[in-house]
């Protein structure tokens, strides 16, 4: 059992948890700044970039895909800004125009190109292949000390770990200005904090987390983790520090519970087939949010009347 666990489940569990936490951390600020749908938009627009990178290099390799995704994100930001300025429409509509069109372009590129040899298709883009990230060389917990076995770890683990570390480090580094700018932009500006630059940096960090997670686990987890754990955490406390802590706990909880339920849950009710781990993780995060909506100690607006 334990050898099988290390071989088949340990790595997906770790990747899922890291991905969930890497997305949840910037998600806290996105939810507070009412930019929650940024994660949705980012995870749609990176698709054409990733496919284009694949078509140019002919391989599924990390850095070109990251670059392609980043390029697509920049193009999207420019188009959104252009439509907003020229068309004078609300940002939500400008975003809707851009990300749907770019996603459609990505799907068309994908269908037109011959990607049957590699694992790159629309389903993969939407819900990833967390279950397939197994560590074949492992034969038990002892493998964690075995160099040869460690070299065989799926590269997604290292990539996701690095992305999560980067996101955490940047958040810690810019904690004070980010916090001030999120709650009181005017005050932040008067203190000499470059508010616009900081906002842009936040989107870039979110994009890094999204692209790294997208590659490993698909876009549903990305969108769910940007929003559900931070939103649930927001209903638990009024302090941003504690909110961040809660959101990371919720993200990890959703990832672990979701993975375990998807992999082993069907077996408990007598079905031999596992279900989608990404989908289950998103579902669990939704259940956590639902519980927070019903029982969270800080769930209601304090004095504000309900909006019309």
């Amino acid at each position: 059992m334990s050898a099988e666990f290390v071989q088949l489940s340990l790595v997906p569990l770790l990747i899922g948890t890291l991905a969930a936490m890497a997305c949840a951390v910037p998600g806290n600020f996105l939810v507070l700044r009412r930019q929650a749908l940024m994660g949705d938009a980012i995870s749609h627009v990176v698709l054409p970039g990733i496919v284009a990178a694949f078509l140019i290099t002919g391989r599924v390799s990390t850095w070109p895909m990251m670059l392609g995704a980043a390029g697509a994100a920049v193009v999207a930001v420019v188009i959104i800004e252009l439509i907003r300025r020229i068309g004078r429409v609300e940002p939500g509509a400008a975003m809707g125009v851009t990300f749907t069109a770019m996603f459609a372009g990505g799907v068309l590129l994908l269908e037109q190109s011959d990607t049957s040899a590699v694992h790159l298709d629309v389903e993969h883009a939407l819900y990833g292949n967390l279950e397939s990230l197994v560590w074949l060389a492992a034969d038990g917990w002892a493998s964690l000390g075995d160099r040869a076995a460690l070299a065989d770890l799926p590269p997604e683990l290292l990539r996701m770990g690095m992305a999560a570390a980067l996101v955490l480090a940047l958040t810690a580094l810019f904690w004070r200005p980010l916090k001030i700018a999120t709650f009181d932009e005017g005050f932040a500006r008067s203190q000499g904090i470059p508010v616009r630059l900081l906002g842009f940096g936040l989107v870039v960090v979110a994009a890094i987390a999204a692209v790294a997670a997208f590659d490993a686990v698909g876009s549903i987890i990305v969108i769910a983790m940007f929003i559900c754990p931070p939103a649930a955490a927001r209903l638990m406390t009024n302090s941003l520090e504690r909110q961040l802590g809660w959101s990371m706990v919720f993200a990890a909880l959703a990832a672990i519970l979701g993975y375990v339920l998807a992999g082993y849950g069907p077996g408990w009710i007598g079905s031999p087939h596992a279900v989608s781990a990404s989908g289950m993780i998103a579902t669990i995060s939704g259940l956590i949010l639902a519980l927070a909506c019903l029982f969270g100690p800080a769930r209601s607006r304090l004095s504000a009347p309900s909006e019309p």
Binding site: R34, L37, T283
Partner: peptide, 20 residues
């Protein structure tokens, strides 16, 4: 009913329903 803004509600419903 909660203090979450509409965009968070949209994103949460979208991703969770789709995930399920």
């Amino acid at each position: 009913r909660t203090r979450l803004a509409e965009d968070a509600a949209i994103g949460a419903v979208l991703s969770v329903f789709f995930g399920f």
